[in-house]
Amino acid sequence: MDFESLSADLRALQQRALDEAAAAPDPESLELLQIRYLSKKGEITTVLRGIGALPAEDRPRVGAIANAVSEAVKAALAAREAELHAEVQTFRLAGERVDVTLPGRPRSRGTLHPIPETMAAIAEVFGRFGFVVYEGPEVEDDLTNFQMLNMPPDHPARDLWDTLYVDIPGRLLRTHTSPGQMRVMQSTKPPIRALLPGRCFRYEAVDASHGFEFFQVEGLMVDEGTSLADLKGLLDEFAHALFGPRKTRFRPGYYPFTEPSVAFDVECVVCDGVGCPACSRSGWMTILGAGMVHPVVLQYGGIDPERYQGFAFGMGVERIANLRHAVPDLRYYLENDLRFLEQFR
């Protein structure tokens, strides 16, 4: 054995090993090649056994060649292994393909009823202006529902509120949220900014635009110098928040508990003010009633009308919801047909 033949053997061995590694069909074959060439009893080691017959000065040279061969084989095996892994993974993933255009697994979410949702939307707007929410009783007394609101017994304006009475003397089902004004004034001191949402009742036959149960939101603001101009500014903000940039109209109205009284209109949401059946061709839709709190009412509330003044407003929640969602019939709200409710996704 001489140096030349030994190094030639190693080079041949390298070539063979590299060829075999490249052709290895699976990880198991690579394992066998690893054992055959690189293990302690592997072929490289076997070749090196002949090193003892070489002159001492040649031995390190052969050792270096053997190391290089060993590294090359290791690298070839690793490369092939990576290649095989990639092939297998590609094959596996290819087999796992799904139709990604299928509909998803349903996550069912319920919907929220438009009445409380509309109340929340109203409360959100007025909340921005410091109005805090109170709630008053639905089974009210005549005193608070009418008399303290400047409607003594037999007042002709009581006709505006046909009333349901209950079997508790002096009590009735509140016909509006306005008695809440009285309860707020009696329980707190100015400055007052209060919002009173809730259910109301009237003796009224049911049709597309009337019901005997309905919801209102009442507002009350009392302070020194709170004026009609403040009311107008606030209602404009409210209308714009709920109905977008529409024209608004402020005109005289009538309520026994306000003086001056106001009716507040927005440009018809159906025809944008052109005039259509929905707005009786006027181009306007009334969305709420309001006014400066009557001095009689302030006094019943324990507030000095010479020092303080304020405004109140009241709106029908169904009316606001109708205009926002184009609901054609008031009866939809309390009927709870899921075909209606589920549209409020």
């Binding site: 707190t188 400055p191 007052i192 900014r193 302070d223 101009a229 500014g233 404009d236």
Partner: peptide
């Protein structure tokens, strides 16, 4: 009637 936002004390 002019329109302006209330500028009085908050509750």
């Amino acid at each position: 009637t002019p329109a302006h936002l209330p500028a009085t004390l908050m509750p």
